[in-house]
Design a protein around this nucleic acid. Structure first.
Lengths: 252, 252
DNA sequence: CAAATAGTGTCTTTTAGACAGTATATA
DNA sequence: TATATACTGTCTAAAAGACACTATTTG
């Protein structure tokens, strides 16, 4: 049993005694554009995987992991800290990837984050964001490192969270119609939902959405009544949940 | 744009250019003993937090993160790799904690794991396991580092996973009765469940449990028919799920 | 006007949960 | 024998999902 004081112990402690592992954050940033789910990807400008697409990410600095993820997202999208669009992005930790060999340079442990954003502008030219673009998830394959796995995990998390949380509202603007919300579910789940039942269901879940008393400027493109506008309610969990259909196939 | 080859690039790459961060794994290992949920804790033998209880954990070596977690669990419980009891333990990644200052010695990023185990023997004396014990979660407070938070996150994950996965079977032996399974839910959720409804519900979820055709040696302590024995089925998700009662209160 | 959509009504099926009842063990 | 338990039956309420219908807006 040691008899050192804590002060003595800290003075003698040498970080170099432990193996060097780099820690990075990678961000799976999702948004919906023209009805399709998109992910933010960057073109790698250096080795390894030069020219391949990758999730945006970088080394963790003297900051929390959450802050590192938000900073990377800001840098790649060109949004500035404090900007409203960036503040509205929902960020949550996804999981951590650390297999030896996942990066040929050295041992890198990457903490992946998942971001849900309303439709954002194209990343601004100049700076880090030059090589970033929104890519339809259907066309996002063959990524660098183990990012195919990270993206797949992020998509599954997103699909799942739509079931039991109100996070679909993170993909739409402050005020939205029920049809816009339904389009989020359709894009993320990859299947259409019955409009009438969806409508009633959303309104019946306490705290999911709240009415604004206002109505959209105009109806749908090819006709229809002007829909009411809603904003996100105060629920953090949906009860009862909106379960995906066809769960049977995923069960075994 | 670089013109180096990948070989040249790797040769020049210097890990020391990046901030030194230590990577550890911590394990929230849960089991049920005498009807109460227990967590595996160690008494810290050194600074910082000398004498405080902590989650078992340690530095990641040249191994996957999952392997590091299983190794730490084996070391602290005294179970040896390849031992059947250890192989049966369900391990999954919980989340990663990396706030600057969470360890006063240096920047430490900890990947936390969650383990579900059937009732295990007391950690063996000798070696690292000397200071480890199973502690009722109700009595597990004031842990070292941010381990109170890690434990709380692990408990919430465990409660939640019991709802929609068959993981309750990871807490019981290979063959079990419906009442034993119900005791797992009661211990993890902290509330009793209606025996009759639970029984029918478990049997009605496809792939949750399958009958063995066998019957327990004897009935309950104070009387009752000898219950049938079941083993885990092949479902990976419960559909429909077994939802916790009183969800309303957790919703906002 | 034709077509599309918002929003509501209704019916059926599934599921959750309350409660009761019977048979079978135990001390 | 008294009591606890396994397991099943039955009823009600909640919820999911299919389908139909009206009113409203668009080109």
């Amino acid at each position: 049993m040691t008899r050192k004081t804590e002060r003595e112990f800290l003075a003698e402690y040498d970080p170099a005694d432990y193996p060097a592992i780099a820690v990075t954050v990678d961000v799976v940033a999702l948004t919906i554009r023209e009805g399709a789910l998109h992910v933010l990807l960057v073109d790698r400008a250096g080795h390894p995987y030069l020219g391949r697409r990758a999730l945006p990410g970088g080394f963790v600095q003297d900051e929390t992991l959450d802050a590192a993820a938000r900073r990377e997202l800001a840098e790649e999208t060109g949004l500035r800290a404090g900007e409203r669009a960036l503040d509205r992005v929902h960020l949550e930790q996804l999981r951590t990837y650390g297999d030896p060999g996942r990066d040929p340079r050295m041992r890198v442990v990457s903490v992946a984050y998942l971001a849900f954003a309303p439709s954002l502008p194209d990343p601004r030219a100049g700076g880090d964001a030059a090589a970033a673009h929104w890519v339809p998830v259907a066309a996002a394959g063959a990524l660098a490192f183990d990012h195919d796995t990270v993206l797949a995990d992020g998509l599954e998390r997103a699909r799942s969270k739509l079931e039991y949380t109100p996070l679909a509202t993170a993909f739409v603007q402050d005020e939205f119609t029920i049809a816009e919300l339904r389009a989020v579910y359709a894009a993320v789940w990859g299947e259409d939902l019955h409009a009438g039942n969806f409508h009633r269901k959303v309104l019946s879940v306490p705290g999911f959405v709240e009415g604004t008393g206002r109505t959209a400027e105009r109806g749908a493109e090819r006709g229809g009544p002007r829909p009411k506008l809603y904003r996100a309610g105060d629920a953090t969990l949906l009860h009862p949940a909106l379960l995906r259909p066809a769960t049977e196939e995923r069960v075994r």
